[in-house]
Computed example of a mutant assay.
Amino acid sequence: MWNNFWNIIWLMFWAFALISYLFALFAIIGDLFRDRELNGWWKALWIIFLIFLPFLTALVYLIARGRGMAERQSRDVQQAQQQADDYIRQTAASSSPADDIAKAKQLLDQGVISAGEFDALKAKALGHKF
């Protein structure tokens, strides 16, 4: 029974090591293609080394370029956050249906649009299909 238990523990250890390596490998490959300063030949060379000497190359890459990986990741996260904030600000700044109807009513009162156009704008503001 104990022999089988330790085999399971050993299997779990190697499964954890393999999954950890795959996470590191995908992070390295993602970083290679995200890096705009590294030219294509260097990227190809890193990939070739990752294929033929995977563990050693991954370790060397993380030691040599780890700081740059962190900086690129941080920059991308900040850029994504800025885009999300801009989208939220833009969406929040859009007018409500009541505001759209009030503007259309002003245009109708000024004679800029007809009653039919006002009805169409009102239906659009309320989300009705026409």
Rank of each mutant, 00 (worst) to 15 (best):
S114H: 02
L11D: 10
A17C: 12
F16M: 07
A98S: 09
A84G: 01
I29L: 09
R34T: 01
R65E: 08
Q82N: 12
V77K: 10
A115E: 14
V112Y: 07
A17T: 04
Y61I: 00
S20K: 08
M69N: 07
H128A: 11
I28Y: 05
T91R: 15
V112T: 12
L45N: 12
F33L: 02
L38A: 10
F16W: 09
A93P: 01
F16P: 00
E37Q: 12
I113W: 03
G127P: 07
W2C: 06
V60I: 13
A120P: 01
F5D: 13
Q82F: 14
F26R: 12
L18I: 15
D31G: 06
A15Q: 14
L45C: 05
L126Y: 03
S114P: 02
A64F: 11
A80R: 14
V77G: 00
L32A: 12
L25A: 03
D85T: 03
A27R: 14
I51S: 02
L62G: 11
G30V: 11
G116Q: 15
A120I: 02
N3Q: 13
S74K: 14
Q90P: 00
I9N: 06
S96I: 02
D86I: 03
Y61R: 04
D35I: 08
I88Y: 14
G116E: 15
I8G: 01
D76V: 02
D86H: 07
F5L: 14
T91D: 14
G40R: 09
L108M: 10
D109Q: 15
S94P: 00
I19H: 05
I19L: 10
D99F: 09
M12D: 07
M1W: 10
F33Y: 08
R89H: 10
M12R: 07
I8P: 00
G66H: 15
A15I: 15
S20I: 03
L56F: 08
P54H: 09
D119N: 01
I63V: 15
D76A: 15
